[in-house]
């Protein structure tokens, strides 16, 4: 009996010490980890826009982040957006709340520095402070609006949708008319060799160039990819030739991955759903911004 107690006490103690060491290092590394995530995201953003390797983004290119929140108070739920209102160097943010029919409820100034706005914790705190007590906010998603010389050239939308096993998280670059400009799979846990192929060029590049209309009814077909299309998707051809072939398959359904029809279908449906919802939301937001004459840099 005595032995058992000694063993239990000692094992517990060792576990506690181990937990302390691990916790200490977790705290020490958390800042660098956050920074890495941020850098990673930026890399994905620029590569989706086509600025990678030697191609540098021009000076006139500006990215504006739009954060969507669900605001709940005793009366019901409403949608909130944190929008940048400042021009150039002076960063200013406003939090606007819309009801479910798309009418403006209120607009509040949010005092938060540009650096803190990137960080979720700091952002949530600032918004909560601006709204006052009695309202709960839940972070929903983030959209990046890309402008060049003041006019919109692209939207970057993140979406999370169910895959074969768990959720697949993806980022899409959309043209101003909501056609797809690029797709990047950020996180997934599909089977290697089967579902994991969704992150390969020959699958995800199939979405490039799909217009909003063809996206709405996009389907998945279980057919082998034609040889020339495969070459074009994997960028093994000259630019002009590849563009021609892509044009030919522009409105064609997505070719499913061999042995991973479910993954292919869930990505297709996920992209479809995310883009459709985004287009709907953005139109409402744009209408409100225009009607209420809220000045925004994008």
């Amino acid at each position: 009996m005595k032995n058992i107690i000694t063993i239990i006490v000692r094992l517990t103690l060792s576990c506690l010490i181990a937990a302390f060491v691990i916790g200490l290092f977790f705290v020490l590394t958390s800042k660098a980890k956050k920074h890495n995530e941020h850098v990673n995201e930026e890399k994905v953003v620029y590569s989706l826009l086509g600025y990678k390797g030697d191609v540098r983004a021009p000076e006139s290119l500006k990215l504006y982040a739009l954060y969507r929140y669900v605001v709940s108070d005793p009366k019901g739920k409403s949608i909130g957006y944190l929008i940048p209102t400042g021009q150039g160097e002076t960063a200013a943010f406003s939090f606007i709340t819309l009801d479910l029919d798309g009418n403006l409820i209120e607009q509040k100034q949010v005092t938060v520095s540009a650096e803190n706005a990137v960080d979720r914790e700091g952002r949530d705190k600032a918004i909560q402070a601006a709204l006052g007590s009695g309202k709960d906010i839940t972070y929903a998603d983030k959209t990046i609006i890309v402008t060049e010389n003041g006019s919109r050239i692209a939207y970057l939308v993140t979406g999370k949708f169910p895959g074969f096993k768990t959720f697949i998280s993806a980022m899409m670059a959309l043209k101003p008319d909501f056609g797809v400009r690029g797709l990047a799979i950020l996180e997934h846990e599909e089977d290697p060799g089967l579902g994991a192929e969704i992150e390969k060029d020959y699958f995800k590049n199939q979405f490039i160039g799909k217009s909003f209309d063809s996206l709405k009814g996009l389907d998945v077909v279980k057919e082998p990819i034609p040889e020339e299309y495969l070459k074009a998707l994997e960028s093994r051809l000259q630019k002009e030739e590849a563009a021609q072939i892509r044009e030919k398959f522009k409105d064609h359904a997505i070719y499913a991955l061999t042995g991973a029809t479910i993954s292919s279908r869930s990505v297709t449906n996920g992209v479809k759903g995310t883009v459709k919802k985004f287009a709907y939301r953005l139109n409402i937001l744009d209408k409100v911004l225009k009607d209420q004459k809220i000045a925004v840099p994008f």
Partner: peptide, 11 residues
């Protein structure tokens, strides 16, 4: 510990 340090400084 090594895992966390590597993830943070050598991503």
């Amino acid at each position: 510990v090594i895992d966390m340090v590597l993830a943070a400084y050598l991503p």
